[in-house]
Design a protein around this nucleic acid. Structure first.
Length: 198
DNA sequence: GTTGCGATCGTA
DNA sequence: ACGATCGCAACC
């Protein structure tokens, strides 16, 4: 797991599919991710413009949790990857709740099992992840958020790829990965600008 | 100090 | 298609 995360971000993103993340008494099997290449010419990355207090954890070693607050109400979770200073990360976009179903339902409005962690903010809500989980060591056995390899790995032939969701540019990069035909993969929404161009 | 807007979601 | 809602970071 450590070797996977410390390597290049695209294989790390693919390898995170099928992994299980546990927090707040809930475990989610990851079914959809997106790769972000830190400072290395990826304008969509939060680390693209350099180190700030918010993204500081991204510049450290792999295997730590980067969580950020967005749209005034949502938290999203990333796994830091690569070597120190690279600041690459993988956004956890969706998953399937495999244990702690009651807790996940209690935290979410929806009782539709498929939708409990279907989307990056929903996934965090189901797991109870917020700013207090920032910087958690995902590989430490006593950490508040834990990550472990799948019991049955996802076959490469079952992995689909496409453009990342919600980013304004870099639509030529197919850095979103998901498990083909999995019902918990988030529904694609076209990104609409807040104000229309005149 | 001020401002524009975002790796989203639920509802219409 | 739109509003909620606020912290971050860019700019003055």
């Amino acid at each position: 797991m450590k070797d996977l995360l410390a390597g290049p971000v695209l294989p790390a993103a693919r390898g995170l599919l099928g992994c299980e993340i546990s927090a707040g008494g809930v475990t989610v099997r990851i079914t959809e991710v997106e790769a972000y290449a830190g400072t290395a010419g990826d304008p969509a990355s939060h680390a693209h413009r350099g180190r700030t207090p918010r993204n500081a954890i991204m510049f450290g070693p792999a295997g730590f949790l980067y969580v950020y607050f967005t749209y005034g109400m949502h938290w999203c979770a990333n796994v830091v990857t690569g070597v120190e200073g690279e600041a690459s990360a993988v956004l956890l976009r969706a998953g399937q709740v495999v244990s702690g179903l009651d807790l996940a339902i209690a935290r979410r409005r929806s009782t539709v099992e498929r939708d409990l962690a279907r989307g990056p903010a929903r996934l965090c809500q189901a797991l109870g992840i917020d700013g207090t989980a920032y910087g958690a060591d995902l590989l430490a056995p006593d950490a508040p958020v834990r990550l472990r390899l799948p019991s049955t790995p996802v076959l490469e032939s079952r992995i689909a790829a496409g453009p990342r969701v919600g980013v304004t540019g870099a639509h030529d990069l197919e850095w979103r990965f998901w498990i083909a035909d999995d019902p918990t993969v988030s529904v694609y929404r076209r990104h609409v600008p807040r104000k229309r161009a005149q």
